[in-house]
Design a protein around this nucleic acid. Sequence first.
RNA 1: GCGGGCGUAGCUCAGUGGUAGAGCAUCACGUUGCCAACGUGAGGGUCGAGGGUUCAAGUCCCUUCGCCCGCUCCA
Length: 576
Amino acid sequence: MAETPQPSAALPAPPKSMDEIMSLCKRRGFVFQASEIYGGINGFWDYGPLGAQLKKNLRDAWWDDVVMMPCWGRKGPTGDAVRTVPLDSCIIQNPKVWVASGHVAGFNDPMVDDKETKQRFRADHLQGLFGLLQQDTHGLARLVPTGGYIDGRTPVATVVASSQHEAFDLLSGDRKLQKAAGYSNLRYSSQSQMNETGGVHVFFEFRGQDAEGYVYGVDPEVMRNSPEQVPSPFTGKPGGLTAPRQFNLMFKTYIGATATEDDIAYLRPETAQGIFIHFKNVVDTTRVRIPFGIAQTGKAFRNEVTPRNFTFRSREFEQMEIEFFCHESEAMAWYAFWRDWRMEWWRSIGLGGGNLILREHERDELAHYSKATSDIEYRFPFTAPGYGELEGIAYRGCYDLQQHQEHSRVRLDYFDTERGEIGPNGQPKGERYLPHVIEPSAGLDRGVLALLCEAFTPDPARPSGVVMKFHPRVAPIKAAVFPLVNKDGMPEVADRLAADLSKRFARRGFIESDAKQSIGKRYARMDEAGCPFCFTVDGDSLTAHTVTVRDRDTLSQERIAIDKVCDYVGERLGEG
RNA sequence: GCGGGCGUAGCUCAGUGGUAGAGCAUCACGUUGCCAACGUGAGGGUCGAGGGUUCAAGUCCCUUCGCCCGCUCCA
């Protein structure tokens, strides 16, 4: 037979193709398009048998290392072991939760942002100051288009106001704005009504020093198509505004069968808020003391404008979030601790190498409540040479607890008996405070996608052409057992070995046994599925009680005793 | 949201108006002696969906859904 092929390590790594990765995901049952037989549904993906197990393994690894043995037993910056407790909160909560968190505000109308001042306002509240057209022989009628806006005209100045009247007041009271727009001394001239297009349109005309004009709503088409020409109401600079954007990113649903507007609820856009709203319950019931974390995994939903890049931006996705509560004075130390450990953790499950980076946010990138944020980013084939976010570690101050405290009117502060001045009895008097929060928030589906992309390794020297080099800890198939040929008692020995392996490892992943077709074909199938170890029962197995073990990554084979096989696998799965 | 491309078997694709195809994969039987061997046989398609033009549509037209790429966006 052919010689053992050598891995083509000497050759430079061929570029990874997202198409090929997606094709393999479909072919081997890692990821399917949701509702595929009905034509699919944009932004939703399902996991096939291997993908479901891969995802579970990643989630379990996170749970083990975050909840059961936090940070691998490492001590935190305060010298104590890291403590976390788990939580599992509902996808649907009282809508007030999302009002408090800021997710509901202004989400039902197209919104415009000022890029410089970061102020956001409703697009239909942008009122413009327009000069009259030079040759306006047809009068104002020609300015009246459809929809109540002045079609296609660019204002020389803008203000945010809910009515033309208010807009005129603002404009006429702001000499600086007038001057910037080339006018001065604006005053009310007349109010005309038009009904050329069936509707009544009211113009607030004005007269300035040298010109006339009118105040009217800014055409959304203009804001959308040429935002670079629209002056900002805050800075007066043209181009300072974004185009109007729909921000209804939360999925709506109705509670109860009546489905009226009063019954509206939302699918959670993040799991984090479920943790914040139970902060007090957890403190009161579990004897945790600050510093400690609450961890949760679960589905979240966002009505993304543009789902794209395979599972990277999906409308339904799973998060793995920790909210770590600590005293403000120690928050930055904990922030650095979590940031660095999370980075180590992703490396430990196989995302080492140059594709993983830690990126500290610039100051102007930070949310207003955040004092520091960093992203752990992976270089996906579709982001290369750039990176895509896997996990964000944010120092959120006490913003979230404060918001919920205000909106719910329930005190969420914490009485820390280990702080405060030492009293006459030698005991600290205690300190009452709102804890500060470090939030390591990871995307499980993005993690799975990164594992798939990282594992995907084209190798022309192999019969399969590709090998999935999953870390054994996350590999969906942990081991495979093959009889070299299907006779001479080999299948029976193989069956017994597979049964032993299953007994010990089947809770962590599949144990495959396969007696069909040539041995090479079976190895090739396991390469594509990313099975790290293949044990082959041959003639010597019957007499010497040994099998060969083939290493997926090196293709090397060694012979080990049958009764050592389970320990061999156990060691490599990280059981020590 | 805008522009471009694509959609035929599980996968990769051919098929420019006239009987739905290939390779690989899958299954069965035989063979088998460490890297997708071989032989024989089998199953698998309303050509993404809907409508239209035509004697006749996978092929031409319209609509729609999905995916990919670029811009935009990512609270």
